[in-house]
Structure formats: structure tokens, C-alpha cells
Simulated scan of single mutants.
Amino acid sequence: MLDDIWVDDSVFALRPDFAVLVMTAHGLRNGPTDDRSRQWLAAASESEIQTAKIDAWKDAYRAFGAKPQRTRPSVDALTRRMPLPEINRAVDAYNSISVKHALPIGGEDLDHYQGPARLVRAAGDEASEEALGQPEPGEVIWRDDAGVTCRRWNWRQVARTRLTETTTNAIFLLERLEPMTLEELKEAGEELAELLSELSPQVRISSRLLLDGK
């Protein structure tokens, strides 16, 4: 699965500093928010907002024609929702890491994917859920063989691949732009892996870093 995921060269041409740490978690035991994941959210809600990292994503949105004041990058939207919302344990885990590091993170159910995930510039005719709307030509989207899985890089995910309380196999996309360093990206991935392992001691986690030229 990890070896099949790719980022199109046109995305790197837009932002050569882009990198994504892809993590898969097999054998996850998810469930409703509990005291442990509630504590993660509370701690993250006390984090200082790192505006430089968020501003980098706003600039990336403008580069492909999106208006970040109308459709905000995920981490920008999340930091405006303090205290952080309770969703489920796995989502609480990655949302807490996202806010702590000002790092957009997407989490999705691998069993609902059709073919590999890939990050591309949209043609504009991709299949998309009605609630998500149709991507515009040139828009950066995550997609699989069935169509769009996330619009505007990390703005909004489809319901089809959403992480639910019954999810057992998941994929997490940790997306970096400068000024975040690759070392901090790696640290964020390790922290997320630790939280997922707390939830599910038997979980099997694998990761792969995708960046320009590699």
C-alpha cells in the first residue's frame, strides 16, 4: 500500500518544499472519545498558535487559486475551534498532534479506499461527493480510483473514507511545508504512532516519507 502512494510532479512544482509523511495503522482499535483522548485534546488546546506555519498553507492555497479565508487549510480551521471537538479516539489523537505542531493531518479508513492514494492537480471532472462539491481545474486534491478523497489539499475529506469508531485499518497523511523542518515532521509522526499504540497496543504501524525528487 505505502509503495503505491504518490505525489504528482505538478504539486511539487507548485510547492517544492512540500513533503508528506504517510502512515498506515493496521489492527487499530478505535472507539468513542474517552478520558485519555480527552486529555490529549485538552493539552493540545493549550498550544501556542504557530502562525508562520499556518500562513505557509494559506500561501499554498492562493497558489492554486483558492481563497483561504473561505476554505481554510485544515490546521487553520482546527485551531479556530478551541476547545478541540471530540470525534473519536483515533481522530482525537491526530487532531491533537495537528494542533501541537501546526501540521495538517488527514486520517482515513483504508478499507474504504479503492486503489492507492495520490495527490494531484485536478482536471475538474473527478467524481466527488455532492456535499464536497466538484473540484476546480488545477485544484490540489487527494484522490483514489473512485474519485476525490480530500479537496483543496487538506480542506475537507469525503464521508466515504472517514475514520469511524469501527475503523480497524487507517491511513494518516501528515503534510509539511516550510518553515516546518523534516525533523519536526518525523517527530510528529513518532508522537502520533505513540498515541495510536496507546489506543491499540497490537497496532502495526508503517510509514513512508514522500518529498520532491524522492
Rank of each mutant, 00 (worst) to 15 (best):
D111W: 06
V11T: 08
D92M: 05
A52G: 13
L209A: 13
L177S: 00
E130L: 08
A44H: 07
S207C: 11
G124C: 05
A25M: 08
D8Q: 09
P135T: 00
L84Y: 12
A122T: 03
R29Y: 07
N88Q: 12
L110W: 02
T149K: 01
R38P: 00
L78Q: 12
F172A: 15
E48I: 15
E175I: 00
Y61H: 11
L78T: 14
S96M: 10
K53T: 11
R208Y: 01
F172D: 00
L163Y: 12
V158T: 15
S197V: 05
D9M: 05
R118L: 04
Q50I: 15
G189I: 11
A93Q: 07
V158C: 15
F172Y: 14
D76N: 07
E194L: 13
G124E: 05
T149Y: 06
G115N: 02
A123P: 02
E139I: 00
L119Y: 06
T161F: 00
I97Y: 08
A63T: 07
R15Y: 06
P32E: 06
P135G: 00
A193W: 13
L14E: 12
Q134F: 03
P135C: 03
V99M: 10
A63W: 06
L110S: 06
R121N: 08
K53M: 14
E108H: 09
L174H: 10
R118K: 06
L21A: 11
P135F: 02
L174G: 03
Q157R: 15
H112D: 12
D111T: 12
D59V: 09
E183N: 10
L21I: 14
Q114P: 01
L14C: 10
W57R: 11
A63Y: 08
R143G: 02
W155G: 03
H26M: 07
E175A: 15
G115Q: 04
R162Y: 07
E139F: 02
A13W: 05
R208P: 03
A122I: 01
R208N: 01
E175Q: 14
A127S: 12
A93P: 05
G106F: 12
